[in-house]
């Protein structure tokens, strides 16, 4: 897990925890827990919602740490400005990642078959044992975020962002490394500007 600081944000939003889990075995279980938690009433509901108070993101759709951080940043900014388009800062990250306006959670959230998950928690600087909170939900191998580009499903990313016919991609087609730099740049920029894209 890695932690990033944003001292200019209000304290309760100033700290971002990010972890990558590989070989995840309980994605279907996490997904159904999330659905059930949203319907549970009373203190049990609060406890369960608190235990699941993360963004769960399909790691195959993330190109780079910068791509992820850009979505997180825009979500936290929207929250700080009281202009969230979704219920929570965590669901807002999925909204920011999605180039269109539908199916953000279905596409970018946890699916039953996901084996690589990114888990994000926005908090104050003094939330203790965050990694412990994450590992108690996700059964998988905690991995370095350096591995992100190897997990990326570049074909699906290109499809979701409708990049296949773009001149930028055609120009870089001969060279895989070059193409990934171009895709990562377009995708990251798309996330950064989603709030003003018509």
């Amino acid at each position: 897990m890695q932690t990033f600081r944003y001292p200019h944000f209000p304290p309760e939003l100033s700290t971002v925890h990010v972890a990558l889990f590989n070989t995840v075995t309980n994605s279907a279980d996490i997904r159904s827990r999330i659905i059930r938690a949203s319907q549970l009433q009373g203190p049990d509901g609060d406890t369960e919602r608190n235990a699941l108070n993360f963004a769960f993101i399909d790691a195959r759709l993330i190109c780079s740490l910068l791509h992820l951080q850009t979505a997180i940043y825009q979500a936290v900014l929207a929250h700080a400005q009281r202009s969230l388009r979704t219920k929570t800062v965590h669901s807002e990250i999925l909204w920011a990642l999605n180039p269109t306006n539908n199916a953000s959670i279905r596409r970018y959230g946890v699916s039953d078959t996901a084996t690589s998950l990114i888990v994000v928690r926005i908090s104050s600087p003094d939330l203790p044992d965050v990694q412990q909170l994450m590992t108690s939900v996700v059964s998988g191998t905690l991995s370095s975020l350096n591995q992100l580009p190897e997990i990326t499903d570049w074909g699906t990313v290109k499809k979701y962002h409708k990049l296949n016919d773009e001149p930028a991609l055609k120009a870089a087609a001969k060279n895989v490394t070059q193409e990934r730099i171009v895709v990562n740049e377009i995708v990251t920029s798309t996330v950064a500007m989603k709030s003003v894209s018509s």
Binding site: T70, L77, S189, M193, S195
Partner: peptide, 28 residues
């Protein structure tokens, strides 16, 4: 103006024109 500048940049990026990538937008 901010939205316009961001849209021109993304259009250029997709078209393979060398321009700076976008990193954050606070239109407010």
């Amino acid at each position: 103006r901010i939205a316009g500048e961001a849209r021109a940049l993304i259009k250029c990026l997709r078209s393979g024109v060398n321009v700076p990538g976008i990193r954050m937008v606070d239109a407010t």
